[in-house]
Amino acid sequence: MSEFSETEERQTLRREVAKLAAKFGREWFTDKARSGEKTTELWLEIGKFGYLGINIPEEYGGGGGGIGDIAAVCEELAAQGCPLLLMVVSPAICGTIINRYGTDEQKRRWLPGICDGTGTMAFAITEPDAGTNTHNITTTARRDGDEWVLNGRKVWISGVDEAENVLVVARAEDARTGKVKPVLFVVPTDAAGFEYQSIPMEIVSPELQFQVFIDDVRLPADAIVGDEDGGLVQLFAGLNPERIMAASFSTGLARFAIEKASAYAKERTVFQGPIGSHQAIAHPLAQCHIETELARLMTQKAAALYDAGDDLASGEAANMAKYAAAEAACHAADTAVQTHGGNGITQEYGMAGLLVATRAGRIAPVSREMILNFVAMHSLGLPKSY
């Protein structure tokens, strides 16, 4: 087998997830979104077959695989028209951080629910005034006897209404130095003082975005995940998987768009033959396919490096993969709409909604501009620009 080919086990995983997701499909997904319903049925089905926690150790109900496996699941769901944003958040970010830094008791408490879908966990880091500058977050955690008290605001928090808990990034004062440091807390969504409000979005998705209000939320000492003094190392253990998953989310959407557009181009006849026989239609679709396959290759590289424990190299590759995948997806969605002509902006064909869905990949979880800053500075050695 070529080293550029995925293992037979991974390829089988892709086929099985695609088969499962195809039973639901894009029409089912958008119907759920437009009617205000959730995709719980699909979520629990993924969990039942062991795909949801495939990156989590078997002793906690997972599949014992790596980030490359859960990224493959995420991509195949999106490629069948069912992109699930909580795949990025619950098993990949929260599951990875808890598995790497949680105590044995915390792993037993939270990982099985993440694996089977009954204990979905959201992730809260972004704040209204901090944006992508994580160093400027102002959500605070202070000790009060044996407890912690959290106060702050978060924004763009996905799926809080579907989660039992939220992994919240707060800042606590270091008793030795007086400086603040990032600390991770698991907060129940039904905790007193924890409230959230949905943000109206143009994107067609059953998974909603929220503002979160944290007012004097009291937590026990064991709500902390990892070492209180662990700092950014623990946080970034979840952010590199987040970028890899975001890349897979985008490449899945790109594949979906290209497949639909290609099928339409084979059938739609306007002049002498199918419109796909004209290079004005064929070449843009071919270009999108090339860009998507290149992005998939970089995503697989990033996942392989991460699973091998190379955090430094995987960070660079994860950022590049996320950038390349978002660009490929935006181009694919735009090309798919253009291929469909007027039909591209109808609800019947479902292409126009992809424009917003793929565009989000250029912004979240980190903007394309910040990725370019990262590559310029860390890969090319250029002076820091921000």
Rank of each mutant, 00 (worst) to 15 (best):
C115Y: 04
I137Y: 02
L167W: 06
T138Q: 10
E173Q: 12
N165P: 00
N133Y: 03
A130I: 07
N136I: 00
I137R: 05
T140E: 11
R171Q: 15
G119T: 06
G131S: 09
A175Q: 08
A175D: 10
N136W: 03
I125Q: 11
R176G: 01
E127P: 03
R176H: 05
D161G: 04
G119R: 10
D146M: 00
S158V: 07
A130E: 01
R143H: 07
D129I: 00
A170W: 00
A124L: 07
T138E: 14
D129N: 09
G119S: 07
G131A: 09
R153N: 11
V155Q: 14
F123S: 02
N165Y: 15
T118H: 07
V155W: 09
E147Q: 13
M121G: 04
A163H: 08
E147C: 14
R171P: 00
I157P: 04
L167G: 05
I157D: 00
R143Q: 12
N151H: 07
V166Q: 09
G119F: 08
T120A: 13
V169H: 06
V166D: 06
A170S: 12
N136T: 01
D144G: 00
W156P: 04
S158M: 01
V155I: 15
V166P: 07
T139S: 14
P128C: 12
L167Y: 06
V160Y: 07
N151K: 08
E164W: 08
L150P: 06
N133Q: 05
V166I: 15
G159W: 02
D146A: 13
I125C: 11
G145P: 09
G117W: 01
I114L: 14
G119P: 03
E127R: 02
A175I: 13
E127N: 09
H135D: 14
S158D: 03
T134Q: 09
T126L: 01
A130M: 00
D144Y: 02
F123T: 03
A172R: 14
I125L: 15
V169C: 12
R171M: 15
E127H: 04
V149K: 12
C115Q: 08
A141V: 04
E164Q: 14
G119K: 07
R176D: 02
I157A: 06
P112T: 15
T134P: 01
V166A: 13
A122L: 05
I125D: 00
D129L: 12
C115M: 10
T118R: 14
S158A: 09
P128R: 14
G113I: 12
I114S: 14
L150H: 05
I137Q: 13
D144L: 11
T139C: 14
V168H: 05
R153Y: 05
N165H: 14
C115S: 10
T139E: 02
